Amino acid sequence: MQVNQARRREWSRAGLAILGIAVVMAAVELAMGRVLICTCGAVDLWHGEVNSAGNSQHLSDWYTPSHIVHGLLFYAAARWLLPGKGLPLRAVLAALVEAAWEVVENTPAVIGRYRDATIALGYTGDSVVNSLADLVAMLLGFALAARLPVWASVLLVLALELAALLAIRDNLTLNVLMLLWPSEAIRNWQAG
């Protein structure tokens, strides 16, 4: 009984920490001049048009799978790097890394890099609502990885990456590759 109470307290503290991380992330992004919601005035559950002003402005889009993959990968990294630490602490650290990425991703320098090096020619950055939804998507991936066998997590990563690749000719792998080592051949292929 005491073990269950201690575990609940540990998860409660982790949940509060993750909520705090989300609030700080949102406040930083707002202070950076990011819009709270899409300038279109709506918050859609799904926005599937990649080359549009609504991309990265709503709750989910074709880049949401990449944030689920973040969670799967962060779980694996935390399990490997912090084997003696509990799952709640690892979840908090994963949320911290994701929130830090969301802030960095929405700086003028990185937005400019996306425009210069990838097919995201009209990318203007994320709305705060989209960043918060991306954090939730990462936590979903993290939770899935904590429950799935390793082989299923690997298959899920491959399936999500392949689905995005087939649907929009982009995914987390190509996104990272194009940000770090742009390839004109890949960019031309992505442009269709």
Results as ranks from 00 to 15, higher is better:
79 R>N: 12
98 E>D: 09
47 H>D: 14
56 S>W: 04
156 L>S: 01
182 P>M: 11
96 L>I: 08
4 N>W: 12
81 L>F: 15
4 N>T: 15
79 R>L: 11
103 V>S: 05
54 G>H: 15
132 L>Y: 04
81 L>G: 11
138 M>I: 06
119 I>V: 13
72 L>T: 03
189 W>P: 06
158 L>H: 00
85 K>R: 15
27 A>W: 02
13 R>Y: 07
158 L>F: 03
179 L>Y: 08
170 D>F: 09
166 L>S: 01
33 G>I: 02
102 E>A: 14
121 L>R: 11
184 E>H: 14
72 L>Q: 03
49 E>T: 10
81 L>T: 14
77 A>V: 15
124 T>E: 12
62 W>P: 03
147 R>L: 08
97 V>G: 08
89 L>Q: 09
76 A>Y: 08
169 R>I: 02
178 M>N: 14
15 G>H: 02
34 R>H: 07
120 A>E: 05
162 L>K: 02
25 M>H: 13
16 L>H: 00
87 L>Q: 05
40 C>D: 15
66 S>A: 15
3 V>F: 13
52 S>P: 05
111 I>T: 10
61 D>L: 03
167 A>K: 05
12 S>I: 04
53 A>C: 07
97 V>P: 04
2 Q>M: 11
75 Y>C: 06
167 A>N: 08
173 T>R: 03
91 A>W: 09
161 E>I: 01
95 A>L: 10
167 A>Q: 10
105 E>K: 15
49 E>Y: 07
63 Y>W: 11
76 A>W: 14
185 A>N: 09
159 A>W: 01
124 T>F: 07
164 A>S: 15
177 L>G: 11
116 D>P: 03
167 A>G: 00
121 L>V: 07
